[in-house]
């Protein structure tokens, strides 16, 4: 009694498919529909404007592209910092004996907390606590604007993003490191490889998969970053830390009220994300095959 396999597929996938269609697919399609209108999100009367919104994004919307460039710059920095730090912490922790568990617990801790809450805690640090260092202890390095300066607020955001995200990547790297067979390390040592050499020729190739995953995760998160920036600077001062997600949010909900236009922007963001991911997967796949 071989039924059509597609019927079986549909039967078992039905519940997931149903919620998926209702909660994700329909809103996406509706959103794409709105992106072709001039709807302001309030007024029930709106009209179809074709691809005007997209034309405007690509020809006249400097703010959007500034935000895009900032997001790319942020993503680049945060992905590198996160992965270097996470891998570094993982290696450092693995070199310890008794304190391993403790450090892992501590570094992972921020991942348990909502970034809205974490962001507010750091807001407290950057607007109140740092000035204690300069005003009472004379550490004048701290006597500057951390979240209100176009350059330094970038570093402040990076700090909080790394604080909030490194632990997650770190535990992935730890697991990957632990899966590297001890025999390989020993063999390399017998062959006369030093610890740095061992890291590059034995450890690194073995954790390539973890590396791929961590890059994928961190890049995706970085491109959609919202909470950290929202809680720390709100995109300011001016627009100097405005990321794409905040640009879209403001376009739709803050004073400009151009909801149709904002959905057009999110469609563009979606397309960029797809492209970045596709390229990334393609490169990684080729690399992995080469090995």
């Amino acid at each position: 009694m071989k039924t059509n396999p597609n019927i079986r597929v549909l039967l078992f996938a039905a519940p997931a498919l149903l919620v998926f269609i209702a909660i994700k697919l329909v809103p996406v399609i509706l959103g794409m529909g709105y992106s072709l209108t001039n709807w302001n999100g309030i007024d029930p009367s709106w009209r179809y404007v074709g691809i005007d919104n997209f034309v405007e994004i690509f020809t006249r919307d400097a703010h959007f592209w500034t935000a895009m460039v900032f997001t790319i710059r942020y993503s680049l920095f945060v992905v590198i910092l996160l992965n270097v730090l996470a891998l570094g912490l993982a290696l450092a922790i693995e070199s310890q004996r008794r304190t391993r568990g403790l450090f892992r617990t501590i570094f992972y801790l921020p991942n348990m907390i909502s970034m809205i809450i974490g962001g507010y805690m750091w807001n407290f640090i950057f607007t109140q606590v740092v000035y204690h260092f300069s005003d009472n202890w004379g550490w004048m390095f701290f006597d500057q604007s951390w979240i209100g300066d176009p350059t330094r607020s970038f570093y402040a955001i990076l700090t909080v993003a790394v604080w909030g995200g490194a632990g997650y990547l770190m535990v992935i790297y730890i697991a990957a490191l632990q899966s590297v067979p001890q025999v390989l390390q020993e063999a390399a040592t017998i062959d006369g490889a030093g610890s740095i050499r061992r890291f590059f020729s034995v450890t690194l190739p073995m954790i390539k998969q973890a590396f791929t995953i961590c890059l994928f995760i961190s890049l995706n998160n970085a491109f959609q970053v919202f909470d950290v920036v929202f809680a720390l600077t709100g995109g300011g001062p001016g627009r100097s830390t405005q990321v794409v997600a905040i640009n879209i949010y403001e376009e739709a909900f803050a004073r400009s009220n151009r909801f149709g236009y904002a959905t057009a922007k999110s469609t563009v963001l979606f397309a960029v994300l797809l492209a970045v991911t596709a390229v990334q997967l393609w490169i990684m796949k080729r690399r992995e095959e080469e090995l």
Binding site: G148, D149, P150, P237, G238, S240, E250
Partner: peptide
């Protein structure tokens, strides 16, 4: 227009931090 009011606020921040 709300977008203008909003932009004024943003630009004054930028002006204050000597960005513009």
């Amino acid at each position: 227009p709300p977008a203008v009011t909003d932009e004024q606020g943003k630009l004054l921040q930028s002006l204050y931090v000597n960005q513009i």
